[in-house]
Design a protein around this nucleic acid. Structure first.
Lengths: 158, 158
DNA sequence: CTTATATCAGGTACACTGATATTC
DNA sequence: CGAATATCAGTGAACCTGATATAA
């Protein structure tokens, strides 16, 4: 009723030196939520979740990567990645094999089915990813990229 | 150990008309994940989760808002919001009372304890939110805001 | 002994779909 | 009747902390 037509707008709290029109952290969350929702809907019916798609993408992008590496890249704990990989293995998208040289490491291999699945996922989400940049100038894109990388790599105040 | 030192970089896949240096959707996810992680760590010890903090913030920002409204604002289902509000109620941060006029609607009231909790949360995350804009020019900030709003409100290709 | 990897065990908040009751 | 609100029921992936075993 009252607030349904405007999904993105500023909280009232009058704090923050800049950006009185809305906390930029709030905008970041909303943008991510909307993007994630569109992605999940695009993937619906493929029997694959967004985290699984992300991990699968990493495994193909960085062949031979370890589970611990995936965890660091994804900013997740090794345990969580282990569960996601286990679910991928259960559906036959990947196979875990003992590493040839390094005894403790598990080599995560993406199967033929896994690659087929990934290709399907990519074709489904292509339009959504392309739409992220429509109507944006080159300068603006650079500013956005710079900011996203800054936020992603910003050191913690600990 | 191969990829641990660079948490943000481009997957190899050579697709996408622009942004060969990394899918911007990937950067968005990484930025959000890093920000969420910092927020969760800042809130740790306060016995409150990030979704609870978000909902609590909305309830204070938009007094009298309904659960369905919160769901639309948060891009969540009404059922999910109901669970989050129930957890907030269980800890005494909010109270649900039948709406005076509209019979079916529940009025979600933020208690004194809830407001105290929210104030604590805000002081904890203030530095993190401020850091989102350090080193960013006014022009860049505007470009980032424009893009975030665009992504958040972009119509779905359905 | 220290570090890194991987997994098991246990737990919980979150988020979904589906069904139901109520109110306008 | 339909549309909106709220909740119950059931399910599951995801995410955590803590403990354990193995290997470099």
């Amino acid at each position: 009723m009252s607030a349904s037509s405007q999904a993105v707008r500023a909280p009232r709290a009058g704090e923050g030196k800049r950006g009185q029109e809305g906390h930029i952290g709030y905008l970041l969350r909303q943008a991510n939520a909307a993007h994630r929702l569109r992605m999940e809907r695009a993937l619906s019916g493929l029997e694959v979740t967004l985290p699984q798609f992300s991990v699968l993408t990493m495994l193909v992008a960085y062949p031979g990567i370890s589970g611990a590496d995936v965890a660091r890249l994804s900013l997740l704990t090794p345990q969580t990645v282990s569960v996601i990989v286990a679910n991928l293995e259960r559906m036959g998208a990947v196979a875990r094999r003992p590493h040839q040289i390094h005894g403790r490491i598990q080599h995560i291999e993406v199967s033929k089915d896994g690659r087929r699945l990934l290709a399907k996922c990519r074709s489904r989400v292509k339009q959504i990813e392309d739409d992220l940049l429509t109507g944006i100038s080159g300068d603006e894109e650079q500013a956005v990229r710079r900011w996203l990388v800054k936020v992603a790599t910003q050191a913690e105040p600990g």
